[in-house]
Write a protein that binds this DNA or RNA. Structure first.
Length: 137
RNA sequence: UCAGAUGGCCGGAUGGCCGCUCCUUGUGCCUGCACAGGGGGAGGAAAGUCCGGGCUCCACGGAAAUACGGUGCCGGAUAACGUCCGGCGAGGGUGACCUCAGGGAAAGUGCCACAGAAAGGAAACCGCCUGACGGGGUGAGACUUUCGGGUUUCAUCCACAGGUAAGGGUGAAAGGGUGCGGCAAGAGCGCACCGCGCGUCCGGUAACGGAGGCGGCAUGGCAAACCCCACCGGGAGCAAAACCAAAUAGGGGCGCGGCGUCUUCGCAAGAAGGCAACUCCGUUUCCGGAAGCGCGCCCGGGUUGGUUGCACGAGGCGGCUGGCAACAGUCGUCCCAGAUGAAUGGCCAUCGGCUGCGUCGGUCUUGCGGCUGGCGUGGACCACAGAACCCGGCUUACAGGCCAUCUGACCCU
């Protein structure tokens, strides 16, 4: 599974759908293709020192690698953001956090952007999905 | 046994399931990737980025000076250091041992708050002492008297003039300290010892130490105030730097072509021919050149991606030799992280540790309670902390534990 590597990809995801839970914050963006889902990780200095940030990032990576193949949709980028609760959240609860977050993001009533249809998403005025396409070459 | 001192070391373990990265071997459509087997994969501080180097680029005639910055007892170690080792001196501790920004204050300038009389070529606030033929007050005595007093002597107080740094008081610090003599009272005024300074001899590579001599106290403290002296230092940093590949707007260079207009052919694109030259320069024309234009090529720079730099090194471990040691030499052996939105792990179980509670013992104590051991049980419990070019240090953080040597008490033999 590919990971996000460039700053502009993270910025694009930050403008997409977003859902926060106790253990993590999930952001997503619909790409204009039908490739496998990708993920990126973000843990800011606010969470703690380098050791704490590394541990939080590894837990989030394990979450993404275990659940994303079945829950992630093709053509989507997901960014998992660590928070203070990521470190001591029980493992099952952390998995449940991710599952509920991805469910909320793809819920049909929330935004039609979740359908993966890029043309309808550009017409939807709820979220700033449009600059994503403008930025992509 | 208890309390310490110094030095060194470790800093969770085992298993299962699922993953990451690098190397290597094999197979496969062998470019790139996939699969399988094997192997490596965070620290003592990886941290702070405070010093010193290697390496890279830039600058530079060797270098020196000025400025600026740093270092500062002596000797040694080292690639180098502000580091380390061994000494010296001063201070602290019963001791093992620890601490020290430890050059120069008779080169100069400056500062020494508050308090205090005075803070630096001394100074008289209190105190102590002396003074008369003199001034004032009080008391006592003597003489005299017209009984109001007067004269005079002594003591004492005040004022005055001087002497005095021993004492008090102020202060971080008051111009050597202690003792004896001396003196009106005092004072290095004299003497002895200590301190200080100067030179001699001895020991030591030296810092420095020791002995004896002279001086007779002059030279207060602060240099982490300026400063002086000695020594060291060019600047920036791996996001350094080199290379490759793309796609670009603009820049520079080279080469070629060309400009306007008319006619003919052609739907057009364009072709052929004639006439002729917009701006600048060579005074003008001719002619030539240059720039503006187009095309092609090249150069350099920036952006993005990739590769190198980049892990065989002032390398680790062990032995021997030299040295008190830091360390050096030599022999053997080993290859030991290499990520880049950043790998080195996620989850579970068992053990271990820590800690709270309960309970049962042991021991010390009058007791409260302390120490220690067993069992049960609980705990988002598990120190500080994550390589980023690499080394040598320093500093800071750190649950718990181990080892060695040494010191001081107490007990036993």
């Amino acid at each position: 599974m590919d990971r996000l590597k460039y700053r502009r990809e993270f910025l694009a995801a930050a403008h997409g759908q977003k859902w926060a839970t106790v253990g993590l914050v999930l952001q997503s963006r619909a790409r204009a293709d039908e490739n496998d889902p990708r993920y990126g990780l973000t843990v800011t200095r606010k969470v703690g020192n380098a050791v704490v940030r590394n541990r939080a990032r590894r837990r989030l990576r394990a979450v993404a690698q275990s659940l994303l193949p079945e829950l992630g949709r093709k053509g989507f980028d997901y960014v998992l953001i660590g928070r203070a609760g990521t470190l001591h959240r029980p493992w099952d609860a952390l998995l449940a956090d991710f599952a509920s977050a991805i469910e909320h993001i793809h819920k049909p009533g929330r935004a039609r952007a979740s359908s993966g249809d890029t043309h309808s998403s550009s017409r939807a005025p709820r979220q700033q999905e449009r600059p994503v396409h403008g930025r992509e070459p």
